[in-house]
Write a protein that binds this DNA or RNA. Structure first.
Lengths: 254, 254
DNA sequence: TTACACCTTTACGCAACGTGAAGGTCAATT
DNA sequence: AATTGACCTTCACGTTGCGTAAAGGTGTAA
């Protein structure tokens, strides 16, 4: 049986373009070219195409397929095992992705008005991400794997009321902090109250509170421009002031 | 704080090219361009980039991200839910892929010499695939879902000895068939012996044997050029002859 | 012969950048 | 002042696996 591109394409369920492409990249050459320049495929080509399509369905790249089908001595099994590893890696990544998307969706679902939502989301994300990135390792080492997971889960599971509470707390922190900053003394009662409020606010995000972590976070407010910007928005120097207050509050500095 | 491309790139952990690209596709424009044509980014751009990168990490396409970050009223949650669906679809497909690759690997592992292996693999795959494709639905309807699964599993679990037996049987079928074909009578004893041997051979692939299925497969040998080619390789007409013999053997035709 | 379905090659488009190339700018050093 | 080296700029091609015209030749039935 001999086939033209279209015929073979139909037989195999691929497009004619695909066959021309396979010809182009030397993965499947026609048996011969007739006098008009038409590609003519024979039985051997049909079989080979089947093989190609089989590997293609397994998600193997045409490059690897080329090796498998052109070199008869090529270790196809090994190639497949390597391919399998890649697939597993992809799967793991995909699973993580889905978990994250789920988290984010859970976060945004049935909760708050659009305007606040954006801010809230972004901030919580930032919190978790930053916290993870910067202190994740230490925290994991100190408190174990699942503490961190629980902490993240805690943020993600905040309810509407929690959100309102945390938002209110956030404002209180800012207000108290602003008043304290005006006085200029991070050891003052009002500055310590700001630190205390900050701790309460923080406890909405962290399952386990520790003075070390609190102090570390405070330092981060100064070290990371994005946080600094957030606290310094109204009064430059506020982030540093808050850090000092918290360091005193946590007893890290006197 | 103001940043040039490189600075912002470093801060955010992306390449400068990426930032230029984001500028190009109107996803993140610099706050301003200085007198030398340099891109200058500000705090707002940093925040926006964070958002972009967040969605990017979730695997959202830049196109969708554009909608999310440029239109403030755009329903990001809905976009995420849709995205989630896509991810789940991908995951399902990936899982199927991995399962298939696993099957194929299991098939090739620790079994036989290279040269034969190729043939064997290809043929088994063909068997299963073709059988699935052509008779899968009917068989499933008749014998239920798990019969088919068991059958496939059976092929996949063939041992070395099984392989030798099946290979030997395959040769016996071919030989007997060739002798029978020379006589020309599909009802002859020797032709019926070929059909019987073919049945035995088949039983290595099918968990449940049925005359109907056997007869159906025989017909397929004639209908499908690839199988026809296999049987007709030495003597054209052999496939048809085998079908007739099997139809008589199974009592489908007298 | 004329229509119509096929075939051919050439070449741009897709996603999200990586990677030069060619040339201007800035700050520090000689 | 000139040079160096590290920045910056705008093209523009390469990546994967084809889809999709465009422009033109071929085969065959009416």
């Amino acid at each position: 049986m001999e086939y033209t591109v279209q015929k073979l394409a139909q037989l195999a369920g691929v497009s004619a373009r695909t066959l021309r492409y396979y010809d182009e990249i030397d993965i499947l050459k026609p048996a011969r070219i007739n006098s008009s320049g038409y590609r003519i495929y024979g039985q051997a080509e049909v079989d080979r195409l089947q093989q190609i399509l089989f590997y293609r369905e397994l998600g193997v790249g045409l490059d690897s397929i080329k090796n498998i089908v052109t070199a008869p001595s090529f270790d196809g099994a090994k190639a497949l095992r390597e391919h399998r590893e890649k697939l597993l890696e992809k799967k793991k990544q995909l699973d993580r992705l889905i978990a994250n998307v789920d988290k984010t969706i859970a976060l945004t679902e049935g909760r708050m008005k659009m305007s606040d939502k954006e801010k809230f989301e972004g901030f919580k994300r930032k919190m978790i991400d930053e916290n993870e990135e910067k202190y994740g390792k230490e925290i994991r080492e100190k408190y174990g794997e699942d503490t961190v997971e629980k902490s993240n889960a805690k943020v993600m599971n905040m309810s509407q009321e929690d959100y309102e509470k945390v938002t209110s707390l956030e404002m209180q922190v800012k207000e108290t902090l602003s008043q304290a900053f005006a006085l200029g003394d991070p050891a003052s009662d009002i500055a310590q109250k700001a630190a205390e409020l900050h701790k309460q606010w923080l406890c909405f995000y962290w399952k386990e509170y520790s003075k070390d972590a609190h102090a570390g976070l405070a330092q981060m407010y100064v070290d990371d421009e994005r946080f600094t910007a957030y606290y310094d928005k109204e009064q430059p120097g506020t982030a540093e002031f808050l850090r000092d207050a918290i360091h005193i509050y946590t007893g890290m500095k006197k």
